[in-house]
Design a protein around this nucleic acid. Structure first.
Lengths: 193, 193
DNA sequence: GTCTATATGCTGATAGAC
DNA sequence: GTCTATCAGCATATAGAC
């Protein structure tokens, strides 16, 4: 006897494993249903549509990602390591069983010409969290003055790491971290720290 | 009286304008046909399938992109400017009437779980050209020893700039160039130049 | 011979009825 | 949970215009 919460969780788990590996459009609803062991009616009652399930999966995923990132920050020894911990977290998150091919948020947004509002909101929240938290972690490293610019630069590097996963396999895991290290050093020099 | 070459060009132009702005899957073939003012039979005779047209459009697009980049390199005053000219070219290319929402190659690849061979080859060629040419431009700046690593780093920054276009509009046009400048400075310091 | 216009088979996703 | 209707998009076939 399946409770409502557990069938919804099964659907979200299935969505996580399929939609973000194969792509949203490329994955038939039937496969999600089959993996979840759930009937179509359940999906449409709980989430309204395939897109509804997608958005719910993204929201849950963002929470998980932020926890992963927080753990990496907590494990880092000093201010600069805390700022760069996002790259450790990316690696950890990528190696999860439901790790996306590149990025669940960017990938979902990229599939729509003009993403529907709830989907755009999910990506915007991801972007905001990245920028805001990077900025907060940047303050101890370069001070208030340089924090905005450094956060934007690092967000670009993070996005670059994600996009590189779509290209051929030449990419070393530490490439993004190396670039970020250079960016931080440059910002430090600029602010005299 | 429409010649064979001209109808094919009309299809490629329409593909450029629609597929890479709205996304490949998101654009029905019918719209491409309507914009090109061409009948279905013409498309399927010339390109075999929607995907065939896509690949042909990507191939033509890569040639155009490389010409744009070469022009930007030629206009740059010194070795470092030539290495960073790729960011000028990105801006120029983006502002074309058929400029992609983010990146025609990454976007097309992202839509397939496991891209069909001709599509994968198109993206691989894009990646190879970027890496190889960046490496050649890096040699005068940091020497043979550091050129591979610098090229890889800059490729990541380029990809980051492209991916940022999927996020919200906070991005300044010079952000990628600033990051790249820091990366080049760091590489220079490392190789003692 | 190359194109246009139109009609149609086919497949698979979505949604809802039972 | 099964089963079915609807709908959209891709691909092809046919017939005729330049």
């Amino acid at each position: 006897m399946a409770s409502r919460a557990s069938t919804e969780k099964k659907l979200l788990d299935a969505a996580d494993q399929l939609l973000f590996r194969r792509g949203v459009t490329a994955t038939p609803v039937d496969e999600v249903l089959a993996l979840a062991g759930v009937s179509p009616a359940t999906l449409y009652r709980a989430f309204g549509s395939k897109d509804g399930l997608l958005v719910a999966a993204l929201e849950r995923r963002l929470d998980t990602w932020l926890l992963t990132w927080e753990a990496a920050v907590a494990a880092a020894p000093d201010d600069e390591a805390r700022l760069l911990a996002v790259f450790d977290a990316l690696e950890t998150f990528r190696s999860r069983p439901d790790g996306a091919r590149w990025c669940a948020f960017l990938g979902s947004a990229a599939e729509h010409a003009d993403p529907p509002a709830p989907l755009a909101a999910a990506l915007a929240r991801d972007t905001d969290e990245l920028r805001t938290r990077l900025r907060a972690l940047a303050v101890p490293v370069v001070g208030e003055a340089g924090a905005d610019e450094l956060a934007s630069s690092l967000l670009l590097v993070v996005s670059g790491d994600l996009a590189m996963r779509l290209r051929d396999g030449h990419v070393s895991a530490s490439a993004a971290r190396d670039v970020a290290t250079a960016v931080v050093a440059s910002a430090r020099r600029k602010t005299g720290r």
